[in-house]
Amino acid sequence: MITNIIIVKDLVKKFGSFVANDHLTFEVRKGEIFGFLGANGAGKTTAIRILCGLSFPTSGELSVAGYNVYTQREKIKQNIGYMSQKFSLYDDLTIFENIRFYAAIYGLSRKDIDNRAEILMKKLNLEDARNKLIRDIPLGWKQKLAFSVAIIHDPKIVFLDEPTGGVDPITRRQFWDMIYEAARNGITVFVTTHYMDEAEYCDRVSIMVDGRIAALDTPVALREKYQARNMNEVFLKLARAQTKEVA
């Protein structure tokens, strides 16, 4: 049975007279990898911030992990993980201290923190580097560590806001392996990106243009519908159609 873990109906977010999200309606299914695509400024980050409880919508009905976005923000925050565009780790703390900190603010017990930190460091082959400062480790490691830390408390959903910006292709590939693994373990992944090749890795993608959802389906279905060879072409066709409409 398919259950929807995120339900968004008619989400509108205005900043003054500027409409950043114009009547967004979509659902995210439990356990899927949902790609949230769009050019810079299309309104992706605004939407993701609302879903994470970082900002209030102007209007619309939203439920995340079964909780109401307006009234149950604390419950939502306990059940989601979040990784932002910028690095979310502290440069002047060690690997272990960073893990311990995030585990602690999500309310894990001391024993749990130690256990999970050990498992996590073993998995990432960072056992020898546990006392290294974050500023001294390579970018790729930081990225993987940041993701692992974002799901250390076993959230129901993890929101990734352009997690692979500025990372080399090999690390990106490894990063996506980690995303698959998380999805296999039952964590729903909500990921924004503007790398169109990454869109192919998602179960379903939505493409935002100028604050609206222009298309939403599986990558295969989208390619067929727009008669495109890859997601990049799908995206360009959609973006051009929009520009024509405006002109």
Partner: peptide
Amino acid sequence: ELGTMELLLASPLR
């Protein structure tokens, strides 16, 4: 500046 404030606000910390 680091962007970690977002993370703190998205966490259950009040």
